[in-house]
């Protein structure tokens, strides 16, 4: 079970607030946002901005926690916003906090393999269609050469990505740190 930390500490709340503080609640974002259009009650881009403006405690309602994960990151909102509010960046920051503080069990389970792939192979998706690659005359393997992969992994390690994955693993899987 995920051990839930405190969601959106003061510094993070302030950061998110700063990103949206010029929001007039005009609703242009919501008018183009695909999840807003297709989900109606369950997601609203303008409402998301409002919650950041109010520095709302998102862990107070399950609906609020789900908001961050519905965004397509299509950038429709930021393109249209008269004040250039980077709502996609807000969503990304929110997602990072939700994950780090233990509020995203399902998300972690869905994404764990891809993230481990990135750490271990330098690619988020394994290269595939090996038979077709061979058939058309491409090298069957698109693996990153060992030496370079070692450097990429080192860089990710130095910047804390490996540590983050470890921490998330223990947050969501309880103490068992898988090291490959």
């Amino acid at each position: 079970m995920a051990s839930k930390g405190k969601l959106l500490q003061n510094k993070e709340s302030a950061e998110l607030f700063n990103l949206v503080k010029v929001c007039l609640q005009c609703g242009l974002c919501a008018s183009v946002c695909p999840p807003t259009r297709f989900l109606l009650k369950d997601f609203n881009a303008r409402l998301l901005s409002l919650k950041m403006l109010r520095k709302e405690n998102l862990s107070s309602s399950k609906g609020s926690l789900e908001l961050a994960w519905k965004c397509f990151l299509c950038f429709d909102c930021s393109k249209l916003c008269p004040h250039n509010i980077p709502l996609p960046e807000v969503v990304i920051k929110l997602r990072m906090s939700l994950l780090a503080e233990g509020f995203a069990d399902k998300i972690y389970m869905l994404m764990e393999e891809s993230m481990k792939n990135l750490l271990n192979t330098g690619l988020i998706l394994p290269f595939g269609r090996i038979n077709i690659r061979r058939f058309i005359g491409l090298p069957p393997s698109a693996e990153i050469p060992k030496e370079s992969l070692g450097k990429i992994k080192d860089i990710l390690r130095q910047l804390g990505f490996e540590e983050l994955l470890s921490r998330l693993s223990s947050t969501y899987k309880g103490g068992v740190n898988e090291k490959r």
Partner: peptide, 23 residues
């Protein structure tokens, strides 16, 4: 094939912060 992932998916999903993208 020395190219690495651009990092977008990891960043969009909330796992990799912007500095990973830059790196």
């Amino acid at each position: 094939y020395e190219e690495a992932c651009c990092g977008s998916f990891a960043n969009f999903s909330g796992f990799a912060d912007f500095k990973i993208l830059i790196a």
